[in-house]
Design a binder for these strands. Structure first.
Lengths: 232, 232
DNA sequence: CGACCATGTGAACACTGTAAACATGGGGAG
DNA sequence: CTCCCCATGTTTACAGTGTTCACATGGTCG
């Protein structure tokens, strides 16, 4: 994101420490995991003494928030690429691609993924990166809205679908990197993500007016213009 | 699980330290969160000096695994209760209830929930509690299988449905306790879980042979005895 | 009763995050 | 060009951590 030959604020003793620290933190966090992550370790890695970090970050948590922001940005790019690579005339497939991209990113960079999925991290994200993340969500939502408008998706409220889909994807990513599914390589991760989004997708395809309903309890989309009845 | 008046191994200096330590760790972890969790802190809380912990646990991680096991056991009980409270003749609703129970547990005890959802924790779980967790999964799967057999659930492979449903529930729980959905109280958590399981449920209800399909790309359940085609 | 061994303690080590005082050197004012 | 200032980095220090070792204690069993 920043070339060293363009010192935005100033070129100081180190060159551009803040950026170097974030970069060092990224490799430290990838090597040790976000829990073993040590401020002194990244300082060592950057060839600098520990308190120097405090000239650029208020605390260890602040540094962590910065790297989380960087991670969010990278994942955002991966997602953007996935959208771009999906069929441009198929918004549902675009939406689905975002989910698969997230799982792939998580399995490729588990530590980075976990670094940004930490309680309260979203609120602590640097505003710029948070905006980027919001922008991605907006894109995702737009694709889904278009898919729904084009008739690919049942008329369930958008935010509910978004929540369910994102929850499923995030949950799958967590399950994988927590090792609950055993060792999972990139190929298998893609397979699992495909399966999960497939199950979701089955639910999202609009259904005809009458459906086979063994009992009257379950979903009955007859009366109210396509809005299914919940049972609570 | 263990009454103090039944000292299984022996009654020693403290009474039953191991159990007391786990209990102390549970309140410590609930108060400080699983990252700030401090071995010395729980030792203090138990009125004992730090190295005493090492007579009962090999390391801090080992202690954490024990509390995670305790948490898993508690959540397992909550899930069991939820299944018992669901309509006994409605396996799909039972399955759904497990998901809602998980989200409710997560929002009620976020720190405990996070303590057991940590990379590699499942493998480190005490065998007994891991067995308990496996047993819960088995129950869940049985309910789902029965639901499918009874015609409530489309003929998607069971493990895929399990994965999708559990991913969605876990993802929702994570999203809530990470604060990405803003402040969420118990009532709202239940609402969200209901919504998500509802979206999923819509997908799980069997659909007739022919469906409204705007293009030929999407799901087309015609030929292969109910197995939908994936697109990769 | 007496010895043993499981259980708990105190001191110590390497490490961590963080604060305060001090050193340094590049860039702008004169 | 010179000089001073202030942003940047260092040294030292402190409290707290996980963990180990040598030692104290006391219940249990021969």
């Amino acid at each position: 994101m920043n070339n060293d030959n363009i010192p935005r604020k100033a070129a100081y003793h180190h060159g551009n420490l803040r950026a170097a620290l974030i970069k060092a933190a990224l490799v430290e966090i990838a090597a040790e995991g976000p829990e073993q992550f040590s401020l002194r370790g990244v300082a060592r890695r950057a060839g600098v003494s520990a308190p120097a970090v405090y000239r650029h970050f208020a605390s260890k948590d602040d540094l962590l928030a910065a790297v989380a922001g960087e991670c969010a940005e990278r994942m955002g790019h991966a997602i953007g690429d996935a959208i771009a690579a999906a069929p441009p005339d198929d918004p549902l497939e675009q939406f689905r691609a975002t989910g698969i991209a997230i799982v792939q990113f998580a399995v490729a960079h588990p530590a980075h993924f976990r670094a940004m999925n930490v309680p309260g991290m979203y609120d602590r994200l640097p505003p710029e990166q948070r905006a980027a993340q919001d922008e991605f969500v907006r894109q995702q939502q737009a694709a889904l809205a278009k898919a729904q408008h084009d008739g690919y998706v049942a008329k369930i409220p958008l935010d509910e679908v978004m929540l369910a889909a994102n929850s499923a994807v995030m949950g799958l990513a967590h399950a994988i990197i927590e090792g609950r599914l055993g060792p999972v390589d990139a190929a298998r991760a893609t397979k699992l993500a495909t399966d999960v989004t497939h199950v979701l997708g089955v639910g999202l395809v609009p259904r005809p007016e009458t459906i086979t309903d063994p009992r009257t309890k379950a979903v009955t989309p007859k009366a109210k213009k396509g809005r299914y009845t919940a049972d609570h």
